[in-house]
Design a protein around this nucleic acid. Structure first.
Length: 325
DNA sequence: AATGTTAGGCGTGTCAACCT
DNA sequence: AGGTTGACACGCCTAACATT
C-alpha cells in the first residue's frame, strides 16, 4: 500500500495565454492598492466586516472603507448586505481563489513566516470519504499527536458536489477519496492501492465454493446509496443489469456489511474493511476476478494551497499516515 | 492626497410584553 | 395560541476630522 505518485491534472487554466500581455497592464497594476487584497481575503474568510477588522488590527469603518475601494478596483459590489451581515457576490467568489493564491505566494517569500508544528495552533480542515475515514482517521490523529501538540484537525467524512469550491476557497485544505479531482487547478496524490472483494454471510445457503460473474449477478446486492455524490458503490453498479440486482441501498458500507451479515445479500467492499469485520460479522470474503478490482486512494488539494508551508507539512503527515495503512 | 479613527445614523434581527 | 409592537443589540455606512 505504498504506491505514491503525484498527478497534476492536465488542462489549460483560462487566461493562461494572456500571461505575456504586459506593457500598459503593469501601469494598471501600479495604480491598484495591493494592500486591499489582504482586506478582501480577510472579509471573504470571515464574511464579516467587524471580525475581519479585528483580525487585521484595523477599525471596522476602515475595513468598510477598504471594501468600498475594492468595489471600485474590481468594478463590482463584491459584498452585499444580507440581514445583519454581508454576502459575497459571484464575482467575489470568483476572485477569492486567485487572490488567496497570490497572497500565499508573497507570504511564503517573506522571511520569518514559516510553519512550526511545535508552536503552531493552526487548525486544518480535511474531508475523508467513507469508508476511508474508518481506515485513516485513527492513523492521521495518532500521527498528528506524535508530531504536534498545538495543531488540530477538523475531519469531515462527507464528500459532496461542493468539495472543489471548498478546497478552492480554503474552507478545506485537503480531500481524501477514491476519486481524484481531474481539474487543471487541482493536484492529486495517489496514496495507496486498495482491492475490492465480495462479502457474504458464511451462512449463505446458495453460494458455491467458487463465485463467478453469473453467480454474482444472480444474487441480491447491498450497496451504498447509488445516487449520493461520490457513492462508493456506483462505479460497480452503473450498468442496468447489475443495478437491477440491488436490493438494499445503505448510507454507508458499515450498514451494508451489517445487512449482508444477517441476510442472503452480497456486497462489494474494500479488502481491509472486509478483513476488519469478517470475524465480528461472520463474513465470507471472495475475490472478484471479473472486475478491475484495484482502486486507488487519492489525496487532493487546490493549487492555491500548494505553497503554504503549513499545508506542505500537513500533506506530508497525511501521506505518512496513509503509508501505514 | 491617501488612509486612518471617531461619532453618529440607519437597517435588520431578536425577544419580551402586550393585544386579539 | 398566534400576531403585533417596541426596545435593544448588532453590523454596516457616511461624514468629519486626524495622521502620515
Amino acid at each position: 500500500m505504498t504506491d505514491i505518485t503525484v498527478e497534476k491534472s492536465l488542462g489549460k487554466i483560462p487566461g493562461d495565454e494572456k500571461k505575456h500581455e504586459a506593457g500598459h497592464e503593469d501601469n494598471h497594476l501600479r495604480r491598484a492598492d495591493l494592500n486591499l487584497l489582504t482586506v478582501f481575503d480577510a472579509v471573504m474568510q470571515l464574511q464579516n466586516i467587524t471580525r475581519a477588522a479585528q483580525m487585521l488590527g484595523m477599525s471596522q469603518p476602515a475595513v468598510s472603507n477598504a471594501v468600498s475601494r475594492l468595489k471600485n478596483m474590481f468594478n463590482d459590489e463584491l459584498f452585499v448586505r444580507c440581514g445583519r451581515g454581508i454576502e459575497p457576490t459571484a464575482r467575489a467568489h470568483q476572485l477569492y481563489g486567485p487572490i488567496r493564491q497570490a497572497l500565499q505566494l508573497v507570504t511564503n517569500e517573506l522571511p520569518g513566516l514559516g510553519f512550526d508544528p511545535l508552536t503552531s495552533k493552526r487548525q486544518f480542515s480535511i474531508t475523508i470519504s467513507s469508508p476511508l475515514d474508518l481506515l485513516l482517521t485513527p492513523k492521521v490523529l495518532a500521527m498528528l499527536k506524535r508530531c504536534s501538540e498545538g495543531v488540530t484537525l477538523n475531519i469531515e467524512s462527507l464528500i459532496h458536489e461542493n468539495i472543489e469550491n471548498q478546497l478552492r476557497y480554503h474552507e478545506l485544505e485537503f480531500a481524501i477519496d477514491y476519486r481524484s479531482i481531474d481539474r487543471a487547478d487541482f493536484y492529486n496524490q495517489r496514496l495507496f492501492e486498495d482491492e475490492l472483494v465480495l462479502i457474504s454471510s458464511r451462512n449463505h445457503p446458495r453460494l458455491p465454493t467458487q463465485i463467478d460473474y453469473d453467480c454474482f449477478l444472480n444474487e441480491k446486492h447491498a450497496v451504498v446509496r447509488l445516487h449520493g455524490y461520490s457513492s462508493f458503490s456506483f462505479p460497480y453498479y452503473n450498468a442496468p443489469e447489475s443495478q437491477a440486482r440491488v436490493c438494499y441501498q445503505g448510507a454507508s458500507l458499515i450498514s451494508v456489511m451489517e445487512i449482508v451479515s444477517r441476510t442472503e445479500m452480497i456486497a462489494l467492499v474494500p479488502r481491509w474493511l472486509a478483513l476488519h469485520n469478517a470475524e465480528r460479522l461472520n463474513l465470507r470474503i471472495d475475490t472478484v476476478p471479473w472486475f478491475d478490482n484495484k482502486l486507488h486512494c487519492y489525496l487532493s488539494w487546490h493549487e492555491s494551497a500548494s505553497k503554504d508551508k503549513g499545508n506542505l507539512w500537513m500533506k506530508d503527515l497525511l501521506i505518512q499516515s496513509a503509508s501505514l495503512a
